[in-house]
Design a protein around this nucleic acid. Sequence first.
DNA 1: AATGTAATTAAGTATTTACTTAATTATTTA
DNA 2: TAAATAATTAAGTAAATACTTAATTACATT
Lengths: 91, 91
Amino acid sequence: MAIGELFKALSDDNRRKILDLLKDGDLTSGEIANHFNMSKPGISQHLNILKNSELVFSHKKGQYVYYSLNTSVVQDIMKWAIQFKKDKGEE
Amino acid sequence: MAIGELFKALSDDNRRKILDLLKDGDLTSGEIANHFNMSKPGISQHLNILKNSELVFSHKKGQYVYYSLNTSVVQDIMKWAIQFKKDKGEE
DNA sequence: AATGTAATTAAGTATTTACTTAATTATTTA
DNA sequence: TAAATAATTAAGTAAATACTTAATTACATT
């Protein structure tokens, strides 16, 4: 997974809000859209970016598509951040 | 500090490379530029974005401007990431 | 099968981003 | 004080981004 893509996905306020919503449990595309003052296609596009960066999973159930958080990818960010606290080289 | 700005600053490959270089110690604007196949003004602009997001500090010494890493801001990212591992609400 | 609902894809657009070269500012040194 | 060096600011541009509305696809219901 490209850390750059991950940061890019996380740089958008609306996408981070989507992730926050999903912390409380899975939601359908439409339920997510209801929390925003934005068109449904707009939300779909954000969801696609989150899916591509593996920050969320999706599974279809009937005509609905449920989205869920993938917390394991958040670990990658942690790993990236941690190197700045550790790797002080040979001082 | 706006976490969105922070992620935006980190979403660029060249900016992350600058931070990696600074892990080994402070560098001048010109020394940083030497590691890139990019114009000096281009690097200056990246440094300005990193400074605005407080990921780096700068101090002038004579005609040189030294840049240094601000690891404390990386903490903010950790804090953001951690909530996804903890806050599982009332399950 | 026809109609309605959920979601996405397609196409177009205004804004933002990451560069470039040219010009300017600040500092050192001959 | 004039010339050289370090760095930034200014101005312009191609590409990327975040939206929009219209069209399409998939499934459910009558």
